[in-house]
Nucleic acid binder design. Structure first.
Lengths: 135, 135
DNA sequence: AGCCTGTCAGACAGTACGTCTGAAAAAGAG
DNA sequence: CTCTTTTTCAGACGTACTGTCTGACAGGCT
């Protein structure tokens, strides 16, 4: 029975978080954030993590300068989507409804959350009449 | 940097799915479902998977008969919740709002889904007057 | 008694993954 | 020009995870 490796591992995610917060950055800067009082070897750890993220197409590398600069190629919401997709596929036969139901029924939503949801649902409803709207 | 092992692995999940669908069941029955044309050794595979699930408190074992019977101790919605919790914690600082936003804004919801969501949201709204309700 | 089924327990092997070493090139400083 | 530091490139290492398997023992059935 096949296993599913992680789309992004914990250590890779830590690198992505740094790039989301402060990217694009070179390896040295990322290492300084992740390992503030770090060992020299940890430069190589971040290097390896970036190599794997590049292979997974989660980061891109700008080689135009001698010191390469890395940028996240997926954003936080992309990854949230992938993770939610994985949960839907593995547990609910691909259906999103149980995830929605779980989130809405099982969490104490704030008034702001409820308002936001109503607005989003409204956004999705088919419009009774098509109007020209500015882009 | 610590790794997070899976709460339930793919193979363990396959066992749980069988128990959700047709449990409670003994090992032999579970093995027949998971490995229809299976090797004798796969009895031991399922055995080991059940042992690990028991240790994780995801299944319970009824030892009152010579042939032990296994039952899921968490249901599908429990596991959905755990997985969603994990996504919220790792990607959104624990907040559910981005997950909700992603699900509602990024999926083509059916009319039935929208109606369901409106009802659930309504359910969550504070009632204008508190009434005694039977438990 | 022999065979089959089930439990109990541990071991195995491959993969994942965070970490590290080493060679080579280039930049910086004196 | 020489030496040091930084960076890239490439691979290896070690531990844990995880799916799978072996073996001993007990009990039921024929």
């Amino acid at each position: 029975m096949a296993r599913t490796p992680q789309d992004v591992t914990d250590a890779e995610l830590a690198v992505l978080q740094v790039l989301w917060d402060a990217g694009p950055l070179p390896i040295r800067r990322i290492t300084e954030v992740l390992y503030p009082a770090g060992k020299p070897a940890q430069y190589a750890t971040v290097q390896k993590l970036l190599e794997r993220l590049e292979a997974k197409q989660c980061v891109t590398r700008d080689r135009s300068m001698p010191t390469h600069v890395f940028r996240a190629a997926i954003d936080r919401d992309d990854l949230v989507g992938r993770r939610l997709q994985a949960v839907a596929e593995k547990l609910c036969g691909g259906s999103w409804t149980p995830l929605l139901t779980h989130l809405v029924a099982n969490q104490s939503l704030s008034e702001a959350d409820r308002d936001l949801l109503r607005a989003l649902i409204q956004e999705q409803a088919p419009k009774p009449r098509r109007r020209k709207e500015s882009a």
